[in-house]
Amino acid sequence: MKRHQLVLVGLLGLYCLITLAPFYALVVRAFTPTVQSTEFHLWLPDRRPLSMNARLGDLATIYSIDARAFRQEMGIKGYVNPQLTLAQLAETYELEPERIRAWLEPRVQYNGVLSVMEAGFLRSLLATIFVTGVSVGVGGLLGIMTGSALAGFRRPWHLFTYNLYMLNMIIPPMMVILPQYLIMTKVLGLDDNYLSVILIHIKGGALSTMVFTSYIATIPKELRESVQMDGGRHYHYFFYVLLPLMGTPFAVFASIAMPWMWNDLLHPLVFLSPAKYTLPAFVAAIGGTYTTNYEAIFSGLMLSLIPILLIYLVFQKMFVRSAVAGAVKG
C-alpha cells in the first residue's frame, strides 16, 4: 500500500519534471546569445562584455540593433560607415567610449528581451489583457443571459437556439474568416479595431451556452417563481438571485475560454494590423522578422508566456477544479 503510493509519487513527480523541462529550457534559451545557440547550456551563459573592437555593422546584423536609433542617441548626423569598430567610432565622432558601451552593452547582453520590448511587447501585452478581459467578462455575462432565457427549454425555440450555438462547433474558423472580415470592415466599420476580435470571442458558442444553460437548469425553478410571487421582475431575479449563484459555471467558462481567447492567433492576424497584434500574433510576427535571432524569438515566447502562467498560477485552484467538474458534466 505504502510502497505502491511511493512509486506513484515517484513516477508522477518524474513526469512533472519532464513537463517543466521545456519551460526551463525556454528560460535558458531566452538568455543564450544566438551566436552560442549551437552550444549546450544547462544554465544561463555568462554575459560577455561588449568588445570595443566589434564592428557596428556586425552588431546591427547579429543583434538586430537599429543603427538609426544608435545614431540619434549618439547625436551623429549623416551616414555612418558600418565597417567602423566601436573604438574607431568613438574616435571619429569624439564620443566617450563609456557612452557607447552604456547604450550598446545591454542591447547585446540582453538582446532577446530588449529586442522584444522594443518591438512593442508591452503594448501587445496590454492589448491582449484588454481583449481577453473584456471578452471573458462580457462573454460570460452574455452567456449567463442566454442561459437564463434558454434553461429548461420551456419553448421549442429555446432548444432550436441552443442547437444553433452547438452548430458553432462544426464551422471551421478558416472557412468563415473571410466573410467575417468583410462584415467587420464593411458592415460594422471595425477596420483594424480590437472590437472585431472581441465580437468574435463574445458571440457565444457551444462552450458558454452549454455550461451556463445546463448549470442554470439545475437551479430550482422555485427560486424564480418565488421572486415572481414577491413582485420582482425578471431583472430582479437575474441580478439578485441568478448572478450571485453563477460563480461555479463562470469559473468553468473562464478557465476554458480564457486560454482560448488569450491564445487566439487567427482572428487578430486577419483583423488587426501588425501594430495592434495581440500576443500570439505578435510572437508569430517576431518569428517572422527576427528569423534567425533565436534569442529574440525565444525571449518573445518566454515573455508572452509569463503573464498567462501568472494568471494560471494565481487562479490554479479554480482552473483545476473547473477542469474536473466541467469534464464530469461533459
Binding site: 444553433l164 462584415i183 467587420m184 465580437l199 468574435i200 463574445i202 458571440k203
Partner: peptide, 9 residues
Amino acid sequence: QLFLYVLVQ
C-alpha cells in the same frame, strides 16, 4: 448574443 452570433458566425 443571438444577434451577434447570427451576424458574425
